[in-house]
Structures are given as structure tokens and as C-alpha cells.
Computed example of a mutant assay.
Amino acid sequence: MVEIEVNSDTIVFDTDSVVVRHPVKKSLQKDDVLIVLLDVPCGTIDNQNVIGFSTSGQRLWEIEPISDSSTAEQPYVNLFEEDGEVWVYNPIGAKCRLDIDTGNFTKKEQKKW
């Protein structure tokens, strides 16, 4: 079994390490995939702040942005597992279920305020 350690913007996979562009806010391991939610600073546009890695440290995918606008500040703010599925939220109420092998959405829900 691979030992994985997350320290701010560095993820250590046994003896190899990967540096990501922002500190890791939250991580979740599902099967052989480590999914990390990056903590994007206010004022920074990074709407692809969820990344999937293999347990050997290979970057598998980066999530698609929920917004089509390249100037919209809508990073994902939560990552969680519910009933065996992996989900992400963004600040405008979008809840998306992920395919952990590809990072693609398998379902999108919009919370009505």
C-alpha cells in the first residue's frame, strides 16, 4: 500500500513528490485515485482546482470548469463522498458528481436560492 502525505502545496507519494499550484484544502482517496481540492486565493481565477492523481503520483486529470466564462471567479469550494460517489460544490450552488477515472461530470445539480 502506497503511503500518501499532503503538506500544503506538496503531495508525497511514498518517495516521489508533486507540487501543485495552490495549497491543498482537502483530499479524498477513492479506489486508486487521490483527488485534491486546491485552496484558490481570493482574487485568483482558477476554476479547475480539483485534480486527480494515481497513487503513484501521476496526474490523471484536472476538473472542467463549471462556468464557460474565463473571467468568472468560481473555484470549487468543497469535495466530498456521498453514497460511494465523489461530489464537488462551487460557490454559486453547482453540485457535480465526478467520474474519478476521468474527472468528467456524470451529473450536475443547481441549488436554487
Rank of each mutant, 00 (worst) to 15 (best):
D9C: 04
D9I: 04
T10Y: 00
T10D: 03
T10S: 05
I11W: 06
I11L: 09
V12F: 12
D14T: 10
D14K: 01
D14F: 07
D16Q: 12
D16I: 05
D16A: 14
S17W: 03
V18W: 01
V18A: 06
V19P: 00
V20T: 12
V20R: 01
P23S: 07
K25E: 15
K26E: 15
K26R: 15
L28G: 05
L28K: 06
Q29S: 13
Q29V: 15
Q29E: 13
V33G: 06
I35K: 01
I35T: 09
L38A: 01
L38H: 05
V40K: 04
P41T: 06
P41W: 08
P41F: 08
C42A: 08
C42I: 12
G43C: 10
T44Q: 12
T44S: 11
T44K: 10
I45A: 06
I45Y: 04
D46Y: 15
N47F: 07
N47G: 03
Q48M: 09
N49W: 05
V50F: 08
V50P: 05
G52Q: 00
G52Y: 03
F53K: 04
F53C: 02
S54D: 01
S54I: 02
S54E: 00
S54C: 02
T55S: 09
T55I: 15
T55G: 02
T55R: 11
S56L: 09
G57A: 06
G57P: 02
Q58I: 10
R59V: 04
R59D: 01
R59S: 07
L60I: 06
L60V: 04
L60W: 03
W61D: 05
E62I: 11
E62M: 12
E62L: 02
I63V: 15
E64N: 12
P65F: 10
P65S: 13
I66D: 13
I66F: 14
S69L: 11
S70M: 15
T71Y: 13
T71D: 13
E73L: 07
E73V: 13
E73G: 00
Q74S: 14
Q74H: 06
P75T: 10
P75V: 10
Y76S: 14
V77G: 06
V77Q: 10
N78C: 07
N78V: 02
N78R: 10
L79S: 08
F80K: 09
E81Q: 14
E81P: 00
E81A: 13
E81M: 13
E82H: 13
